[in-house]
Write a protein that binds this DNA or RNA. Structure first.
Lengths: 354, 354
DNA sequence: CTGAAAGCGCTTACAG
DNA sequence: CTGAAAGCGCTTACAG
């Protein structure tokens, strides 16, 4: 088949130029408004017309110009991901999940890292959302918990979905992760291994999940008749270094805890380091359970027992909520399974020797 | 100051609606074309006029509509990052570097992971670039080495910058990382520690950097009078698992190598695992040097000696090349320092005991 | 150095 | 169910 056989050349389209809605209309013998209706899946098009126009669209390989549509709609086809989570693994998994949901929708993903300690945070987000007239925004923790940011999105009439460990908004704008459950599993695991003196290195209080995870641990232990000693609770910052500091203070106690649960894996590795420096062997002398199940959890020695959050799935589910109205679905009633963390048992926690 | 004092309300602008070029023109008492000239920094505007118009722009907080500009320019204000590197750390650092350069430019970053083994790779990239009419694209390895992808970008007249360990394109479209140098540093380090039987676990041949790093190692050893035994060279896949397999085969040799250099850190951790399983202690019984200097290099035990690539800087420099024409600069003559990897010496490689 | 007209490729609002 | 007109907010090409 030569170029001259294509519909494009038969219709006398300029080569090298993309076909427009006018070309489709002319060739299909309808008005451009009708083509527009077909593109936008309007029900007010006769089936026969729809088929005819669709055939021309496919034949020409026509795709509507996003800028022109955006200008007319006063809305772009870009989804923003605004995040302040410092873990590369978290960020990349989240991005991939969002992209999973966006695939085939014609929407693209624009990434926007931010820093909540930056005084210009809100004005920068405002400028970003307003300039790009974003189709919608996805907010993982902790920026999802920032009401000043949310206020701006509401004011700009920008759809959003928040991901958080507690319900902060209407169901159609929330994806709640059951962090209480994940921490509870970790707590039960340690209690069932016989541990009674259990240390907890929490995340920073800026993250709602820190308190939720602490609550999950506390409740699970209580369920087993074990009280969480508040003197064994230390606040970390979700970083390796903060894990080191917290572990030093916990392991300097006498008697020291026989097990430590950390709010994330980075801090668990800080515990590993301090234990090694003190000549303690994990898990023989100290059991450790982390949270996040980073790839390195299964690379370090001993392999780290950790709570896994399905981050990629979370990204996908949040994006699906954002797209639901476009697909004629009710985002509040989306049939999404609850996001449940699960404990991945490896070698860093073991039964307490009597 | 009340709302009624603002220029916007004095001029009778509708509240809640963003000011347009027409508002600026009317208030400044010029035509919209003149405002357009000011926005686009045309030299053909009298200084007095420029100042007057700029004042109104600032006063109104006017920012041009990106969709409308995009439609008229036939080009969006989006930079695409197309990548297939599987390392989350690499990806996030690269994104941050690109964003460093984009900050303040009004451009946004659209991420596009891809898979070179996907037969639809080229058509998907074409659709992405064509639909969004990208301002430009940045390509890290290995997709930067894919000529079919580059052909499409050329055909679509989409500016791009490639990042690679060898020069594959004109200087204004290339950021070359001196991987030969990085691997050579690793090689010299091991030779200087007295190692003679040195194993090399390379990356996949699909990555040009694999061969370049091997060459750097070989040349540095030769420089020290040490020959790289080709029987001690094994191809890995840049994954932990492939590092495990490669390490098994290398450490089963008799005599086994006294040191192993790996094409990346992931594979180095595979070596750690095998050594541990075999009862070999690093660095006493085996020295290991990695490449990438992932965050976990300083978390594992012993801390991993590794070659660091300034990935974030690379992202920034590549993006600066892409933006140079917009800033009236010549991208080929940009004053960018050469990208030089550097060896970060830690504890995983030590002097060979006689 | 400045401006009135036409156009970028779509959609909304209104008719029929 | 379908269409002609006007508009989204900018820029290009042409005058002056």
């Amino acid at each position: 088949m030569t170029d001259d056989d294509t519909t494009a050349s038969r219709a006398g389209l300029k080569p090298g130029k993309r076909p427009t809605i006018n070309d489709v209309a002319r060739i299909a013998g309808v008005s451009k408004k009708t083509v527009s209706r077909v593109i936008n899946q309007s029900p007010f098009v006769r089936e026969e017309t729809r088929v005819k126009v669709s055939a021309v669209i496919d034949d020409l390989g026509f795709t509507p110009d996003v800028q022109a549509r955006g200008l007319a709609f006063r809305r772009s086809f870009l989804v923003g991901l605004i995040y302040d989570n410092p873990s590369p693994n978290y960020v990349v998994n989240m991005q991939q999940g969002v992209l999973d949901a966006l695939r085939g929708s014609g929407l693209e993903l624009v990434v926007h890292p931010c820093d909540r300690s930056n005084p210009a945070l809100v004005s920068e987000i405002r400028a970003f959302v307003e300039r790009q007239k974003l189709f919608g925004v996805i907010l993982p923790p902790s920026v999802s918990e920032d009401e000043a940011v949310i206020d701006v999105l509401r004011e700009l009439d920008c759809p959003y979905v928040r991901i958080a460990s507690v319900s902060l908004d209407a169901p159609e704008r929330m994806l709640v992760t059951n962090d209480h459950l994940g921490a509870a599993e970790a707590g039960r695991h340690l209690a069932d291994l016989g541990h009674r003196r259990i240390g907890f290195i929490s995340g920073p209080t800026l993250f709602r999940s820190s308190a939720v995870r602490g609550g999950g641990l506390r409740d699970a232990l209580a369920e087993r008749g074990v009280a969480l000693d508040e003197r064994l609770v230390v606040e970390g910052a979700y970083t390796f270094e903060s894990g080191v500091e917290a572990a030093k203070s916990l392991l300097a106690l006498d008697p020291r805890p026989t097990a430590i649960f950390t709010g994330n894996d980075e801090m668990a590795l800080g515990v590993f380091k301090v234990a090694r420096d003190m000549g303690l062997e994990i898990p023989r002398d100290l059991s450790v359970v982390g949270y996040d199940d980073l790839p390195m959890a299964s690379r370090v020695w001993p392999n780290l027992t950790s709570v896994r959050l399905p981050i990629r799935d979370m990204g996908r589910m949040a994006a699906e909520k954002l797209l639901a109205p476009m697909r004629g679905l009710d985002p509040a009633k989306l049939d999404q399974p609850e996001v449940r963390p699960s404990l991945v048992v490896r070698d860093s926690a073991t039964a307490l020797k009597p």
